[in-house]
Design a protein around this nucleic acid. Structure first.
Lengths: 220, 220
DNA sequence: CCTCCACGATCAACAGGCGCATGGACGAAG
DNA sequence: CTTCGTCCATGCGCCTGTTGATCGTGGAGG
């Protein structure tokens, strides 16, 4: 994990750098706004600690410029509550969090860790089968990167097949997991949904295994 | 954010509940250790305030039992410094923090916020989803840099969605985290608040996923 | 190779449910 | 007393789940 500190107060910058290095981070320090903008723009950092009062270019503008350029690096603003700048103003420019000076060192480390953790928590369970991507969390399905609109039941059926991709899933098992256990209707209902899925996803994904059930395959 | 207070002193419990509700939290109160254990075990709470001297089962055992069951809900112990119990003992049993009675109300709120921030799913106070910035600490929301005035409940609902941005959050889950257990009304209430949020934030942020819930998306 | 049968696919139509919006009741706070 | 936030009830519109009928298809047996 590599951090960039943009802070013109020498003592504060050095003390922060030392502390964060002790936490195991690689830390670079610059003292000028413009310099900070260039460094952060390189894309080599996992997080930027950005002071507001800076020579060259102030922190707000650095942050806003980065965001305008599409740079999404996590930014933790260090604001001084001296009345000149509003503490919440950092929100406007696209910072992910802000700390008001003076702050405790423990709090800073906690925030840094929190931001880094947040960034990396994209462990969403997405099932991939061939050209299909089934996002369980978002309840979305994509084929070749384009979203396919499914209804709740359609999604539920596809989800069952995707959870056991390649295996044959019997209609009884699908009924069991997708429908209420009290359901006593016709098994034909599954055929109806498989049909709808084929229409929306295109043929070739769901293979019929006569007398056994269905199988979701990778083939186009 | 939903909190559980396990405290047998009626006056203290009620005064805490009132104060925390004023901070925008949904608060449930129980007066018995066993009852508290069961409630906390449901997994619907974001934090538990746990007194030590309790009828039914004392706070240490409640805490230890929860932890033994793999429950990781943040626990703030309320210890009475009367010599009988050691204040550090609470930490041994798996509590995340402890407060010694009598404590100031301000300190309590600060600790609660700190714990929620530290242990919460997303530890950073500013949640960004597309053009929206949800500041958990300040309970403020901005869209494209301009503040949007929300009521407490509106904010709480949006906060839940923002905490799991991109994922589908069911109405049941929203109810669980935003409303008290004393609430037994209609699910329609959530639709009312989503409607209000859409009016204030503009359409396109909160997407309805029929039969599943709502999803907060980055798109305009 | 043809026929028949059983299983599966698809379609159209209907009814109920789900979500949305609105107006107003109730209570708390100023 | 007024105002605001919260909550409830109602009606409406559209989507969705389900059904039954009809058509297609694969396999076994003659």
């Amino acid at each position: 994990m590599r951090l960039l500190i943009v802070e013109d107060e020498q003592r504060l910058a050095l003390s922060l750098a030392r502390g964060l290095r002790a936490e195991g981070y690689a830390v670079d320090v610059v003292h000028d706004g413009l310099e900070g903008l260039h460094r952060a723009g390189e894309g080599a950092y996992d997080l930027v600690l950005l002071d507001i009062m800076l020579p060259g270019m102030n922190g707000y503008r650095v942050c806003a410029t980065l965001r305008a350029a599409g740079n999404e690096v996590p930014i933790l603003m260090l604001t001084a509550k001296d009345g000149e700048y509003d503490e919440a103003e950092g929100l406007d420019t696209g910072a992910d969090d802000y700390l008001t000076k003076p702050f405790s060192y423990v709090v800073l480390v906690a925030r840094v860790k929190a931001l880094l953790r947040r960034r990396g928590r994209s462990a969403a369970p997405v099932l991939r089968v061939g050209a299909l991507a089934v996002d369980q969390g978002a309840r979305r399905v994509e084929r070749d990167g384009t979203e396919v609109a499914l209804t709740a039941k359609e999604f539920a059926v596809l989800e069952q097949l995707a959870l056991r991709a390649g295996e044959v899933v019997s209609k009884a098992e699908i009924l069991e997991h997708v429908w209420d256990f009290a359901y006593d209707g016709d098994v034909n209902i599954i055929e109806v949904y498989v049909s709808a899925l084929r229409r929306k996803l295109g043929a070739g994904h769901i293979v019929t295994v006569r007398g056994a059930g269905y199988r979701l395959v990778a083939g186009a």
